[in-house]
């Protein structure tokens, strides 16, 4: 499996009682191969394949940039909080991996 099999999932919401702060939770379906693992059948080392950079945008403005290495777990999970947020705002995540694959995902704050 080289490319993600499923699109990423993003949930963004303002918790009850919280004002202007949105919680974002996202999961990306990606193997995150470290380049150290050997394929059990062939005995060959599986080449490194991992997300290097993930941009988190709030209404089109980058609020956080994630630099990831091969030691981030398979199917990476990320949670963070965005300030000055309101319902209906757009959260957009886009990533690129070390083999040039890309994905963009978007969600509205609930």
């Amino acid at each position: 499996m080289a490319m993600p099999t499923k699109p990423m999932k993003i949930r963004a919401w303002i918790e009850d009682g919280a004002t202007n702060v949105a919680t974002i939770k996202a999961i990306i379906f990606h193997d995150m191969e470290s380049g150290l693992r050997k394929d059990k059948a062939s005995g060959q080392t599986v080449p490194a394949h991992f997300i290097t950079e993930l941009n988190c945008d709030h209404n089109g403005k980058t609020v956080m940039t994630c630099m990831w290495g091969p030691a981030v777990s398979k199917n990476p999970f990320l949670s963070f909080r965005v300030k000055n947020a309101k319902k209906g705002d757009t959260i957009k995540l886009n990533w690129v991996d070390n083999q040039g694959n890309k994905e963009v995902g978007e969600s509205k704050i609930e």
Binding site: H58, V63, M64, F80, K83
Partner: peptide, 16 residues
């Protein structure tokens, strides 16, 4: 393992 560049528009809170 990872490094996050933060801005004033996010809380100082991350889970991975």
């Amino acid at each position: 393992t990872l490094s996050y560049n933060m801005t004033a528009n996010v809380d100082s809170f991350v889970t991975s």
